[in-house]
Structure formats: C-alpha cells, structure tokens
Design a protein around this nucleic acid. Sequence first.
DNA 1: CGGTACGTTGAGTCATATCAACCATAGTGG
DNA 2: CCACTATGGTTGATATGACTCAACGTACCG
Lengths: 233, 233
Amino acid sequence: MTVLPASTSCDFCLNRSHFLFRHLSDTEIRNISFSKITETFKRGSIVYHEGQRMKGFYCLQSGIIKIYKTGFDGKEQIVRFAQSGDIIGYRSVISNEPACTTTEVLKEAVLCLVPTELLFELIKTNGNFALELMKLTCKELGEANSYLTDIAQKTVKERLAEVLMHLYNEFGFDQEGSLAIALTREELSNVVGTATESIIRLLSEFKNEGFIELKGRKIKILDKPGLMKIANI
Amino acid sequence: MTVLPASTSCDFCLNRSHFLFRHLSDTEIRNISFSKITETFKRGSIVYHEGQRMKGFYCLQSGIIKIYKTGFDGKEQIVRFAQSGDIIGYRSVISNEPACTTTEVLKEAVLCLVPTELLFELIKTNGNFALELMKLTCKELGEANSYLTDIAQKTVKERLAEVLMHLYNEFGFDQEGSLAIALTREELSNVVGTATESIIRLLSEFKNEGFIELKGRKIKILDKPGLMKIANI
DNA sequence: CGGTACGTTGAGTCATATCAACCATAGTGG
DNA sequence: CCACTATGGTTGATATGACTCAACGTACCG
C-alpha cells in the first residue's frame, strides 16, 4: 500500500458530489483534505480486521471491497459490499467499539482515512451533515433487517436470485453485459449464507433455465423478470 | 387507546434518565413535553403498520412491544423487542420512508409520540443529541448484522439457546425467576426464524436436559452457562 | 512442471419443514 | 350451564432442502 501525497484534495474527488458531503462548507472540506490519509490497497489486502480499533472511517475513492463478519466456526458472512463513493467503518467509530467486521479488497481500491475526531467534530457542529449521516445509517439498518427476514424465511434458491438482482442494481454491468462485480463461488455462498456446492448447483440450474449466462466468474443476467419472480420481489 | 392530558411532563418520566436525553436542555425537554402525544395501548393492538407513514417516533414509557417484518408468504419475522425507555420508529422517520416494520403490543404499553419536525430540529441544533442518537442507530445496526450472521450460520438449536439468553439479558426475570417476557411458541419461532413445531420440540429437549423449566409461556432458565455453550457465545 | 486455489459433480446424510391428528383452555352466546 | 369455536400447544410420521464428504477437473503462476 502506498501513501499518496496529502495534497490530493477532496475538492477534486468524485465523492465531493456524494450526498453525504453536500452540506459541508469549503472550510470543512479543506479540513478533511488536510487531515485525511489516502492509501491504495491491492486485491486481497485487508483494510481492517474484526476486533481492531479504528482510527477513523474510510471513504472509498475507487475500487470494490467486501465487508464480512466471521462466524463461530470461522465461516465468513458477507454483510455488504462497497464501491466508489461509499463510506465504511463509521459504525464502529461512532459506537466507539472495536470493528465488528473485516474489510477486504476485491478490486484495487483507493481509500481515504478520515480521523475519528474530525468525524465527531462534524457531527456535533454541522447538523445537516449529522442528519445525512444518520439517514445513511438508517438506510443500512433497514436493509439489514430486510435481509435478516429473507435469510430466515426464503430458500437458498430465492436468496441467490435476489442477491444476483441486488448486485446488478448496485454495481451494474461491464461492456460485455456481465455483472460488474466478479465474485468467487465461495464469496457468493458467503453472501447468500449457504454452502459453495449449493451455489454451483443453483447457478448451473439458472443457466440451464436461461436466466443467466456463465463464463468463469462473469455472470450475465439474461432474464431479469424471471429472476425477480424466483426471488419473490 | 386513551389520550392522556398533555400536561404529563417528560420531566417526571423515567425516561428522562435515558442516555439519549441526557444532553437535552430544560427548554428542549419542555418542547417535547408540550408537543408529544401520550397514548395507552392494550395487548394485541398495533402501534403502526408496515407501509404506514409515521408522524413521529415513539418513546416507550412502559410495557413491552414486538417489532416485526412481514415476509413474502405472510410469516412474521420479529426483528427486535422494546421496553420502557426504548425509542421506536425513528428509523423510518429519519429515512423519510414508510414504516418497514409493524409494531404490536405484547404487554400494555404507554407510548409518547414525538413529532417528526421536533426530532429533525433536535438533530440539527443539538450536536450531542445527534451523536447519541447516531450511537443508538449504530448499535442496532451492529446487532442486526450480528444476528444476520447467526441466522445464516447457526442451527435452530443454537439460535434458540441464544435467543433465550438474549431475552434473559434484556428483560430479566420476574418474582418466580421466569423470563419477564412471555412469548407464545409461535412468537418464539418468529424470532428464531423456524417452524413452531421445531421450537416446541427443542424447548422440551432443553427441559429434559435440565437447562430450563416450563410452565405454559413462562420459561425459567436453570443453567445459563449450559445454554451459552449450546449457543456458542 | 508441480503447486495451489478454484470449480464441478455425485452420493449419502441429517436437520428441519410440512402435514395431520389431537389435546387443553378460555371465552362466547344461546 | 353447556355446546361451540378459536387459539395455542403437543406429538408422530413423512418429505425434502441443503450440507457434507470425497473425488476429480481446470487454470493460472512462479
């Protein structure tokens, strides 16, 4: 990982347009620019580990990462993904607890670490920022509850269809029309909450029934309405 | 449901000591006192329905309620419980979305409805309040993620043991030493995410093995360490 | 070229859901 | 007061979705 020159200003960062930051004054942006630390992470590297004390929250400038919890027997449960414009790790910072998830890079990522004190400062002094951040948290909480219900009630097949649609909506597709996020079968199983073999069988079932096309890790969705019907959404 | 005289001041409410409100000034408390609406709900009544627009958030003065999502086939998934001192419904208010859960009263409850505008006002003008509320949200989010992992990875038996310990820690016990919260078998199954029959079988298994004692809906926990071991916590 | 990580397939097993019958209790209304 | 109905609880039999285990194929990499 490389530490970029601190001069990289947040002004030029695409994330400037992120709804969370739209209420910040120029001075506040300058403060962040000044105190943030920018790092580049290669695929497979860990940004932070479960149990680790956070020094601040991260703002994703580019790349894709996965966020997961480690279950009792060591199996990982992927809780969410994040990409350009998303912020991660703020939950633990605000709760003032050790990180309760691990974050691993899937696609080379540039991350800015914004120190804890600055986050608290912003929340306390800029009500609109606080409100936006709270909205974000509430959105995540709603999604978590919703997915909880799905995992508790839906079959693996329904959940896989749902996850594929989810990934489609969140990450879109590349030039070939495949999902822009490429996961291993094991990672897919760690999102859906099932065994790798089950994912493999279901993927080829979906393929045979014409819902998707497979080329290695690349998944092309052919029949969105069909998948949504399977997923019951 | 009875509308109590508005003169019931928040000053005298036990919840005044709730950590969330400790940073409020006397003026702010008076504002809440003035604009809140206090209602009493009997067992079985619905405070708000999934899909409904919220007029504010609720503050539980007394009683116990369950909060659940309704799955595709109509089965309810209990997301959490709340009791005296807890606040509910703020998530949807802040996200400015229709309620994504239904709230039903388990034990006669007195609830205060604090209007939306006042909540936003407080967040924007009182940084410490915003921070406390955010901490609360983050705590809930952490718990949701944690339970997500459990449901995805643990067996029904492990989850039931965990839920029993959870209820014990959250609600304590009554004079007989039984759990202070009495749920039907079906409600228990809607927390654990399983079939009612499975809960019944597992409860009597726990009873036969000496972990618990059963008398109707009253559950007395006899062997905490044993249950925790089963739950893997 | 061998090693390592990922992917695939088949067979057997087990946990859990489903279905069906039945009991207990309490409230209701004639 | 009794039949009546509804709701919740229990038990057994059966079905099946999903996991586990094991073997093998494939592809990339130093």
